[in-house]
Amino acid sequence: MASRRGAMLLVVAALGFQAVTMSACAAPTPGNWADYKTRFLQADGRVVDTGNGNVSHSEGQGFAMIMATAYDDPATFKKMWTWTDKTLSRPDTRLFKWRYIPTGDLHTPDPNNALDGDMLIAWALLRGGERWKRPEYLEASAQIRSAILSKLLVKQGNRTLLVPGVDGFVNAQGMIFNPSYAIMPALDAFAAREPKSPWPMVRDETLRALRDARFGATDLPVDWVKVDTAGAMWTDPDRPPRFGFDAIRVPLYMCWSGRCGDASLDPVKRWWTSFRAAGKPAPAWIDVRTGEVAPFAAPVGMVSVADLALTGKASSARIQNEDYYSSSLLILSQIAADERREKTKSAAKPKPKS
C-alpha cells in the first residue's frame, strides 16, 4: 500500500515550521465530533480524506466508527458501517479493501486490505454491539476477527505477528510489520472477548514487538519494520526510516490501552520533551538513521498525542482547519484520555462488601 500521509506533508509544509500551543483538558471536546461529521462525513456514510485527494480508507471508516461509539451516536455509526460493508468488503474474506477512489469507473482498484482498518472496524463493531445491544454488530466483529487471524497471522523465527495486508508483505526474506497498526486497546478488547483464542498471544507478541522495534540514536519506533526469518527486526529498506505520521499512533494506542508508563515510550517522551524544554515545536518526523527532521512542525493532532503521552491529557483544541488525519488524531487522543480517566476512576472506587 502507498503511504496515506504523503499529501498531508504538502499541506503541513505550507503552514511553515510554527509552534502549536495547546492547553490540556480531561474530557473530549464534543463540538469536534459535530465538526468532524460536517467536514469529513458524506451523507452516504463515507469518510473523506481531505489531505489525500478526497479518497476514503478502511482506516478512516474505522476511526470514525470508533468516534461514534465514544459519542453515543448509533445513527451515524449505522450509516458508516452500512457504506463500509457494502463498498469495501472483499468477496473472498471478511476483510476490507483499503482504499476507495471517488473518481473514475473503478473505485477500489486495489483489492488488498489494511490490517489497521480491519482491526478498527472490528473493534468499533464490538464497542457498538456492546454499547447499543446490537448482536448483529457483535457477530460481524467476530467474523472480521476470525478472518484477521486466518489471513494475516504469520510466524517468523521466534515471533508471531500480524502482517499489514494479505498480499505483498511476506517473502522469502521475512515479513513487514507496521507498529502503527498495533492497536493495543483493540487487541486487549479482542483478548478479553475471546480469552481462549489466539488473541491473548497475538496481543502479547505485538507488545513485545513494539518494545523491540526501536531504532537509531534516538531509539524511536519507525513507520515500517522488516522482520527477517529469524525474527530479528530492522528498519524497512524500502521506506524512509522515520518516526512520523504513521508511528505517531504507537504512543496513541499504547496510552489508550493504559500503557503510557511502558518503558518503550521513554525515548518518544524524551524526544518530545527536548523540544518543549527549548520552547520549540517538535517536527512532524525524524529520520532515525540520519537524524534529519521535517522542515515543518507536527500538526495539531500529533501534538495532542504528545500531550497525551507526556501528561495523560489530550489537547482541548478544536479541529478548525486541520485536515482529516490531524483531526482524527486530535479526536482519538481526546477520547483515549477520557476513557483512560474514566477507567482509572472506576478502578479506584471502593468495591461493595460481600
Rank of each mutant, 00 (worst) to 15 (best):
K78E: 12
K79M: 03
W81Q: 13
W81A: 11
T82W: 02
T82M: 03
T82L: 11
W83N: 11
T84L: 05
T84W: 06
D85C: 00
D85Q: 15
D85E: 15
K86N: 11
K86S: 13
T87D: 01
T87A: 12
L88R: 00
L88D: 00
R90S: 05
R90K: 07
P91D: 02
D92Q: 08
T93D: 06
T93I: 14
R94Q: 13
L95C: 10
F96V: 07
F96P: 07
F96W: 01
K97N: 04
K97R: 12
Y100P: 04
Y100T: 12
Y100W: 08
I101M: 01
P102N: 10
T103W: 04
G104N: 04
G104H: 11
G104K: 06
G104S: 08
D105S: 15
D105N: 15
L106I: 06
L106T: 01
H107P: 08
H107F: 12
T108Q: 06
P109G: 08
P109R: 09
P111D: 06
N112A: 03
N112W: 07
N113S: 02
A114K: 05
A114C: 07
L115C: 11
D116N: 14
D116Y: 12
G117M: 11
G117E: 01
G117K: 01
G117N: 03
D118Q: 02
L120A: 09
I121D: 01
A122I: 08
A122D: 00
L126I: 04
L126S: 14
R127A: 14
R127S: 13
G128D: 09
G129W: 12
G129A: 07
R131H: 01
R131Q: 10
R131G: 01
W132E: 07
K133S: 14
K133I: 14
P135D: 11
E136D: 14
Y137K: 12
L138W: 10
L138E: 10
S141T: 04
S141L: 10
Q143P: 01
Q143V: 07
Q143I: 04
Q143H: 12
I144C: 09
I144S: 07
R145H: 03
R145N: 07
R145P: 00
S146G: 15
A147E: 02
A147H: 05
L149T: 10
S150N: 03
K151L: 01
L152R: 13
V154C: 07
V154H: 12
K155R: 15
K155N: 09
Q156T: 13
Q156L: 05
N158A: 15
R159A: 04
T160V: 06
L161M: 06
